[in-house]
């Protein structure tokens, strides 16, 4: 399969070719590569692409990628609407109030 057509990061629509090119440009740190290309900044936060990118990085540079250089997965685990997050606070406040009344 052509590298140009192989999608590695589906959220940010990145092909293997784009990733290989960025590594060859000198972005050999997984975190820097992520910030350059936005790998792992979409809805799945890199659950699909990061292990693949790690492997590509090893292939291109010939060096093992250190586990500690793996980007942090940020909360929330899955996308949540702002409306429900905002409402949560109101509900917990109400709960606290009703508890106080008891």
């Amino acid at each position: 399969m052509s590298e140009k057509k192989t999608i590695v990061c589906r959220c940010e629509d990145l092909t293997k070719k784009e990733i290989v090119e960025a590594i060859q440009e000198g972005y050999t740190d997984l975190e820097e590569l992520r910030r350059k290309l936005r790998i792992g900044m979409g809805p799945c936060q890199g659950r699909v692409c990061l292990p693949l990118v790690k492997r590509i990085l090893k292939q291109v540079t010939g060096e093992k990628v250190k586990q500690e250089s793996f980007p942090t997965f940020r909360p929330p685990l899955v996308p949540v609407s702002l409306g429900s997050l905002a409402k949560l606070k109101v509900e917990s406040k109400k709960k606290k109030q009703s508890k106080d009344q008891e």
Binding site: Q45, R74, P75, P79, S81, L82, G83, L85, A86, K89
Partner: peptide, 28 residues
């Protein structure tokens, strides 16, 4: 990161721009 921030930010942001209520937060 704190849960307090998520609540506080979502509450204030949707008060400023109610149309964003149904928009998903991705990362923090």
């Amino acid at each position: 990161p704190t849960f307090s921030f998520i609540q506080h930010m979502s509450e204030t942001l949707t008060r400023y721009a109610p149309a964003l209520r149904d928009i998903n937060m991705l990362r923090h």
